Simulated assay, not measured.
Amino acid sequence: MKKNSIATDIAYVAVFTALVIVLAFVSIPVGTAGVPIVLQNAALILAGLVLGGRRGLFVGLLFLFLGLALPVLAGGGTTLRALAGPTAGYIIGYIISPAVTGLIAYRAPRNKAGMAITLTLAAIVGLFIQYSCGVVGLMVRSGLDLGAAIGANVAFLLPDTAKLVVAVIIALGVHSAFPDLMGRRPRASQAPMSAQPEASALA
């Protein structure tokens, strides 16, 4: 069973990493800070929402590891080139955000309303982490002060909000279709009814 679980985790991580890489083809330059609008940041948050913290972390790590040799980042960039430029902070956020997003998401209650609220909160926290890391990166790599670095992210708020809404809707749909994805065991009170007569017969 453990081998099957590991194989499943590898498959999930590989699929989401491939999704993140495919979305590298979407890159829209915005503003003067050299940071484009991309879909990869939302895909990494989605990985955390769907796969949880541990597997979400692995998606971020594998994605950037492949980027050391391949142009998998938005606009055809590599990890090393991104770390040397103004987007360095965002790249660090790509590792942290899916992990934290997943840790929060996988603590969601079973009911639909609670699940929706928790996943939304998790997505917001994930995006906040990306922005925070990005701000630090802009200050270090571009020499911007704190106010200017924060202001450079304003243009991304509306499109990123739209992306988060879509990510949360997708994650809710996935968890609704695959309720066992979070690895939760059924509650004792929800044990199959067929087991009760057997227990009575043995009494």
Rank of each mutant, 00 (worst) to 15 (best):
G53D: 03
L62D: 09
V13M: 00
L127I: 12
V72Y: 13
I37E: 04
A116C: 06
P109K: 01
I45V: 15
V30C: 11
A69Y: 14
Y12A: 12
G85V: 04
F25Q: 13
G60A: 10
P86E: 02
S97D: 12
Q130W: 07
A82Q: 10
A14C: 13
L57C: 02
I96H: 00
G85I: 08
I10G: 05
I96R: 02
L51G: 05
V125D: 05
T118F: 06
T32E: 14
I37H: 03
L73R: 04
T118A: 08
Y90P: 12
G60S: 01
I95H: 08
V22C: 14
A108L: 00
A43K: 12
G75T: 04
G60P: 08
L44P: 06
G126L: 07
R107I: 00
I96V: 15
A14I: 08
G31R: 02
G48C: 06
I37M: 12
V13E: 06
I37Q: 04
G34Y: 00
G48S: 11
I28P: 02
R55I: 01
V50A: 08
P29D: 12
G67A: 09
A113H: 12
Y94T: 00
L39M: 15
F65R: 07
L51P: 09
T87L: 00
P109V: 06
R81I: 11
L44M: 14
I45F: 12
A105W: 03
M115N: 11
V50N: 02
S97I: 07
T17M: 03
A74D: 08
G56N: 06
T101R: 03
V35K: 01
I95P: 04
I91A: 14
L103W: 14
L61E: 01
V38Y: 02
V72K: 13
G34E: 00
R54C: 04
F65C: 14
A122W: 08
F16N: 03
G76S: 10
G31P: 09
A42P: 08
F58G: 03
A47P: 06
A18N: 02
P71A: 06
P86T: 08
G77D: 08
G75H: 10
A122S: 11
A24I: 00
T17E: 07
L39G: 06
L103G: 05
V100S: 03
Q130M: 15
A47W: 05
